[in-house]
């Protein structure tokens, strides 16, 4: 009986590890396939890029303004007002928005809007055996479907980070104005603390978020099974895994960035 008890404990773990491993393999194969000629995925790349752009620009605008205004904006402002230090809100926005919230909201919206669309699309194609048909017709689905989605999501998520930053900071501006304060001190503390390292760190981080979302969502779509219900399950799992992976990766990336660039941790008055 000992073996069955061990099995019962480790069998689910093995499934998780296997999936994680398969996603790693998919990442590797996608990168190799993207670099190795031929490059037949241009049109699909443009299509996917425009698709994500069209799908995400509005939800992202609403989320970043609302979130930036409310969470780091109003909440922090309420707190800073106690010390009569509302001018420091600008400096806080560098920490909060550029480093954390804007990339986060960006990734969550992209995963929830574009990522799920990818999983549902590929999942439906898997169920209808379209992916098998492609392979039998001599078309490599990784090169023709995964690579363009991978590149498009990386680019889109990276670019949308800047968009999310702008609107996130705009939320802070709103919060300052709502507290009847001038914007001068906000911008002064903002630019005192902002650095180009923060900016490129944020963009690189979100580009990699895009890569994570693309791999997870493509993997879940391409391995969907069990009919229409299976596609639903795949979409659900894709979002959950993508979020967890983003949160974990964010922690590692941001801490590594701060550790390797200690100047970032100095708060400038």
């Amino acid at each position: 009986m000992a073996t069955t008890a061990v099995d019962r404990v480790f069998a689910p773990t093995r499934g998780v590890l296997q999936e994680a491993g398969e996603m790693m393999i998919l990442t590797g194969r996608t990168i190799v396939s993207a670099v190795k000629p031929p490059y037949p995925y241009g049109a699909e790349f443009v299509g996917q890029f425009m698709f994500a752009l069209r799908l995400c620009w509005f939800p992202l605008l609403v989320s970043t303004v609302a979130f930036g205004y409310e969470a780091p904006g109003l909440q922090a402002a309420n707190f800073l007002v106690l010390f009569g230090a509302l001018d420091r809100l600008g400096g806080f926005f560098v920490l909060a928005s550029i480093r954390e919230f804007a990339p986060f909201v960006d990734a969550i919206v992209l995963a929830g809007v574009a990522g799920t669309a990818i999983t549902a699309d590929l999942g439906a194609r898997r169920i209808r055996e379209e992916l098998d048909a492609l392979e039998v017709l001599g078309v490599d689905p990784i090169k023709n479907l995964v690579v363009p989605r991978f590149l498009a999501l990386m680019l889109v998520t990276g670019l949308f980070d800047i968009y999310a930053l702008l609107f996130g900071v705009f939320g802070g501006v709103l919060a300052t104005l709502v507290n009847h304060q001038p914007l001068g001190p906000f911008w002064a503390t903002f630019f005192n603390n902002a650095s180009t390292t923060d900016l490129w760190g944020s963009v690189v981080k979100t580009t990699l978020f895009g890569a994570i979302i693309a791999v997870v969502c493509c993997y879940k779509g391409m391995t969907a099974k069990g009919g229409a219900e299976g596609v639903g399950r795949a979409v659900n799992e894709a979002v959950v895994i993508a979020f967890l992976a983003i949160f974990a990766f964010n922690y590692v990336f941001t801490q590594v960035l701060l550790a390797t660039h200690p100047a970032l941790t100095d708060i400038v008055k």
């Binding site: 439906a124 194609r125 209808r128 055996e129 379209e130 098998d132 048909a133 492609l134 392979e135 039998v136 017709l137 001599g138 490599d140």
Partner: peptide, 23 residues
């Protein structure tokens, strides 16, 4: 190897259960 496999598949025509047409 993969390349040869893709070549070999050109010798095949496969009719899937539901046709598997590209929707």
């Amino acid at each position: 190897p993969d390349e040869q496999l893709f070549e070999m598949r050109k010798k095949f025509g496969l009719l899937f259960q539901d046709g598997a047409l590209f929707s």
